[in-house]
Every structure is written in structure tokens, then in C-alpha cells.
Design a protein around this nucleic acid. Structure first.
Lengths: 221, 221
DNA sequence: TTTAGGTTCTATAGATCTATAGAATCTCGC
DNA sequence: GCGAGATTCTATAGATCTATAGAACCTAAA
């Protein structure tokens, strides 16, 4: 039965179990992983796993929560802290990507496998996720209001784009531990802020509007 | 036995099978989907599916290939075509995102499930994927050389970022058919080119220009 | 040492699922 | 209508996999 008061052993093993499940789910996917795989990874028998998880689905649920919880908390801190936009977006991206490194595979599992949970079990995750997105949106809104960002910026789009980009890099980061985290953070921030286009030495500034116009009617579509 | 010369029936059903497999894999994941699910969706019995696929893994393989093949071809056309960078990146994003709409779930399956294929069966997909990336990189390199992009741009990073962002939006597009594709394409291009930062009123350099601002605020159709 | 409760093990029921074999049905040229 | 080949069906072997029950083991307090 699920442990008691000051019992260290249970808590240690439970954490161990969550990490093992995260690693296995990340590698094989929720449905591709077996409870035997998870148990094996933590050095116990398959049946013993049910001492820590009510069910396989319950394991997924806990891994997802573990993967996202303090990552949302960190965002809350960033959003509350009233920094200039540039600092805030850098902090956001840093937090997002270092989460992938630190919490290993749990965040990846949250992103890739959470949809296999039934609606009800996902409620908490959903709330955390949209909380995160809203806070990121508010950072963008503040950026617009402060004049740091263009007033044409669609903050909802912007938040989704940042999240999407960070998750894409996060997947790579998890898969390839050699990647230079700091370098990626820098470049992502730069992209979000400035894009890739050269700004000062634009060839002909008279037709600058013309250049954007012909973007739309090109080639087959 | 796998059909013959002018036999229409087989080809039709085979395509039907691939689409059914794509839909089911997209919804439940490779391991979460059963061959019975796929067969059911195309209105035949589970065992009959093996008339069209050698194995379940073979089905995944074909779906992935189906999902990525002509999408790479389109990129080849774009890269060969010597357009200005702005047009090329718009065409790229348009191609990428409309692929998600048109080929339904097969591209999503390629992105999410292809890693479950054994190394050997993935060889072709890998080649196609890196071909795609390299062509996108060369588009960025051309952009730098032509002066359209800053010469500090890391083209490898840029290509990965674009692919990551497009895939992230693609997932949403597949899941929510109501999303305005054209709007997303516009905003992604704008982000890649210009970022979100206000440029006119930036303290440091007072000059240039209103150039590209109006890309984002044209109220499309 | 004894004992209680916490942790892990073994064994297994019951429910999948993949892939195959062989029978049944369908299609179409003759 | 006949027969050959193409397509689909039924039935099943064999290999999973999840979850549970109950025995065994381990630790620490009395």
C-alpha cells in the first residue's frame, strides 16, 4: 500500500519509476513501451511496477505532469517579473530549452504522448498548458505596448510559434546531447526578435512596398 | 498476388489502404493502431489487409513515403527556380503547410512515427529528408549571398528552424481543419523575414524604413 | 528474537494483436 | 455459362501484454 509518513524508500523509488517510465516512453512511445520495459529499466520485476503506478495509463499521466509542472512555474515567474521584452523572451526560451535538458525525456513525453490520455486525465495538463501559453502571450502583449514590438504582431500566433519552435528544438536536444544549448538559445531569440532579413542595406527602398506585394502570387499553388 | 498489368482495382484499393493506414496511424500512433483498425476503416477484414501490405511495419513505411515524396519534389522545384529570397521562403512555407492539408495525415505520420522503422527501412526517407533540408539551406545561402539576408545568418540553424516551425503548425493544421492556412503562411513568412521587433523607433539607429511592415496587416480574403 | 508493515517476487488469467493458410467469392475474357 | 486469376473471408497459431493475487523477503521497532 502506497507508503506512509517519513518513508524515504517509497518516494525515491517512485521518482525512479517516473524517470524510468519517461525514458522508455520517450524512446518507444506510450503504446510501443511495455510495463516490462519500464520495470526492467528500474531493475524490478514487471508486476512490482504496479506498486508505484495504478496502471500504465497512470504512469503516463504522472510522467506528463512531472514533465510540465515546474516548467510552467518558471514561466509564471518570468511573466510576473517585469523585464523588457528582449530579456523576457530570452528567459523564456532559455527556460523552455533547459527544461528539455534537465528533466530529460519527461517534457518530450508530455508533448508527444499526452493526447493518448483520456480527456478527464488530461484536464490538469490542459490547464497548465494554456496557462503557459497565456503568460507567453501576455509577454508579447507587453512587448507591443512598450513599443519593443511592432503593433501588427499577432500575439496568439507569436506565442504558438515560439512554443512550436522551442519544442522542435527540444526534440533535437533530447535526441542529441552534444548540441550547444546556449548557441541555439541565442539564435532562436535573434530569430524571434529580428528575423533573418538584412535591414540596413536594402537595395532600393523606394519599392519596398512592391517587394512585399509580389510575395503572394508566385508559382504553383 | 500483388496484381498485374492494367489492373485498376488493386491500385485503387492500395491507395485506399495507404490513406486508411495514414489516418489510423495519425490518430492512434503506430503502436497504438491495430491492423484491425486499418482494415475496418477501409471496409475489409483484418486478414485481408495483408493482401496489400506485407506487414504492419511495411504499411508504416509506405505511409511515410507517401507522406514525404512529392513534398520533397516540390521543394526541389522551388530551390531550382531562381527566385528572390522572399518569394522562395514564401513558396517553401506554402508548399510545406499545404502538404499537410492535402495529403491529410501521411506527412504527420512521417514526422511522428518514422523513427519506429528500423534503420534500413528508413534509408530512403532519410535521404529524402536531408535532401529537403539541404535545398532549404541553399535557399538561405543564396539569400545571404544576394544580400537579402544578414551575413550572420546560420543557414543550417535557419533551415531547421523553418522546418520545425512548419511542422509544429502542420500538426495543428491537421488537427484543426478550421485554421486559416493563408493567414498562418503569411505570418510565418513575416516572422522568418522580419521577426517581431519594432524597427522604426529603435533607439540606436534612427533611419530606415517602413519597408516590410505591411506584410502582416493586410486583411486577407 | 519477534513482529508488523512495507516492498518485491512469481505465477497466471484474460485479453489483445500479428501474420498465415486455405476456403470462398468475385470478375471477366472466351 | 466456364474457368482462371484476382480479391476477400474465416479461423487460428503463437506471441505478446496488462493487471491481479498471494507468497516471500526485508527492515526496523519493541
Amino acid at each position: 500500500m502506497p507508503a506512509q509518513s517519513d518513508n524515504r524508500r517509497y518516494d525515491q523509488q517512485k521518482l525512479h519509476a517516473i524517470r524510468a517510465a519517461a525514458a522508455v516512453f520517450a524512446e518507444k512511445g506510450y503504446h510501443g513501451a511495455s510495463t516490462r520495459d519500464i520495470a526492467e529499466r528500474m531493475g524490478i520485476q514487471q508486476g512490482s511496477l504496479y506498486y508505484y503506478f495504478k496502471s500504465k495509463q497512470d504512469a503516463l499521466s504522472e510522467v506528463c505532469l512531472f514533465g510540465i509542472e515546474d516548467y510552467v512555474l518558471r514561466m509564471q515567474v518570468i511573466a510576473a517579473d517585469d523585464q523588457p521584452f528582449e530579456a523576457a523572451i530570452l528567459a523564456t526560451i532559455t527556460s523552455h530549452l533547459t527544461s528539455y535538458r534537465e528533466r530529460d525525456e519527461a517534457l518530450k513525453v508530455h508533448n508527444d504522448e499526452r493526447l493518448y490520455l483520456p480527456e478527464e486525465k488530461r484536464a490538469t495538463l490542459k490547464k497548465l498548458g494554456s496557462q503557459y501559453r497565456k503568460q507567453l502571450e501576455s509577454i508579447f502583449e507587453n512587448g507591443v505596448q512598450s513599443g519593443a514590438l511592432r503593433d501588427t504582431v499577432d500575439c496568439h500566433f507569436a506565442a504558438q510559434a515560439v512554443i512550436g519552435m522551442c519544442n522542435a528544438w527540444g526534440e533535437r536536444i533530447v535526441r542529441d546531447p552534444e548540441l550547444d544549448l546556449f548557441d541555439i538559445i541565442q539564435k532562436c531569440s535573434d530569430l524571434i526578435l529580428n528575423g533573418f532579413r538584412e535591414r540596413r542595406a536594402h537595395p532600393r527602398d523606394a519599392q519596398s512596398t512592391a517587394t512585399t506585394n509580389n510575395l503572394s502570387n508566385k508559382k504553383e499553388n
